[in-house]
Computed example of a mutant assay.
Amino acid sequence: MSIAQTLLAEFEQQAPVTRRFLERLPEDKLTWKPHPKSMTAGQLALHLALVPSAVARFVQNNPAQAPEFKVPQPATVAEILKTLESSVQAVREILHGFDDAAMNELWRMESGGREVLAMPREQFLRNVMLNHWYQHRGQFCVYLRLLDIPVPSSWGPSADEKPVSMEQGEPVAV
């Protein structure tokens, strides 16, 4: 299996999990935030929806220019879910375009005309497209808990539910 296929397989497992988290956000809580320095629940949810495709598009350029991130306030949960679906589709298309040589290529990010980061493209994708995504999903989990919204399971059970595979009585492949 190629590096891109391996990343895509993990992504395909985690995209529906992320969707379950985003679906829980009530429409009337889009502008809620736990602290003045925090993103709103809607902004964090939209960030979760955008991260995969934004990162996949970003690494297509080498070197890439460091972006400035400003997450807009979404108007509806439907907008967030539609953004996630577009993001998932974009990742599928973009990752298929990378062979192992491209994944192992030293990828660079520049800011203000100077290099600020250099690592294999695959490492950046794993660290930011996936790990960064999971970190923000965990953050979103806290938002849901503070709003007293049942938290979906992710890898194992949450305090509110079992993993989908356990509820359906399916064996879990590890």
Rank of each mutant, 00 (worst) to 15 (best):
L48M: 12
T76A: 11
Q60E: 13
T40W: 11
S86H: 11
K82Y: 03
A64G: 05
E79N: 00
H47A: 06
T40V: 12
A78R: 08
L44Y: 05
R57A: 14
P74D: 04
V59I: 12
F69C: 03
P67I: 09
L46H: 07
Q73T: 04
L48I: 04
W32H: 03
E79C: 01
Q65A: 14
M39K: 09
T40R: 13
A64Q: 14
P74M: 10
S86N: 15
V59Q: 07
Q89N: 14
A75M: 04
V71P: 04
P52W: 13
Q60L: 12
N62Q: 14
A49P: 05
E85G: 07
A64N: 13
Q73C: 06
E85I: 03
A66G: 07
P63R: 07
F58H: 11
A41V: 11
K70F: 08
V51P: 04
K33G: 00
V55I: 15
V77Q: 13
A49N: 04
R57T: 11
M39R: 13
L81K: 02
K70I: 14
F69M: 15
T83F: 00
T76D: 05
K37I: 03
W32M: 09
P34D: 00
L81Y: 01
V77I: 04
Q73I: 00
K33W: 05
L84H: 01
T76Q: 09
Q60W: 01
Q60A: 07
T76K: 10
V77A: 02
N61I: 08
A41S: 15
P36L: 02
E68Y: 03
A54D: 06
L81N: 02
S38L: 03
N62C: 06
H47F: 10
T40H: 12
S53Q: 10
V88G: 05
I80M: 13
P36E: 12
P52A: 09
P36V: 00
A78Y: 01
T83I: 08
N62D: 15
P72V: 07
P63H: 03
L81M: 07
T83D: 03
V71T: 08
K37Q: 14
A54K: 06
K70H: 12
H47G: 08
A66T: 09
V71S: 06
S87H: 06
P52H: 11
P67C: 09
L44N: 00
W32N: 02
T76W: 01
L84V: 00
I80R: 10
A41R: 11
A78N: 08
R57E: 15
K37E: 15
Q43C: 07
Q89H: 12
E85Q: 15
P63A: 11
V51A: 06
P63S: 07
P52R: 03
A78D: 15
F58M: 13
S87I: 01
T76H: 04
A56L: 07
M39V: 01
P74H: 08
V51S: 01
P36R: 04
V55Y: 00
A54T: 13
R57L: 08
L81V: 06
Q65W: 05
N61C: 14
Q65R: 15
L50S: 11
P52D: 05
A41E: 10
V88L: 00
L84A: 01
F69K: 14
L81P: 00
V71Y: 02
V59S: 04
A75N: 10
V77T: 09
K82R: 12
S86G: 15
T76G: 09
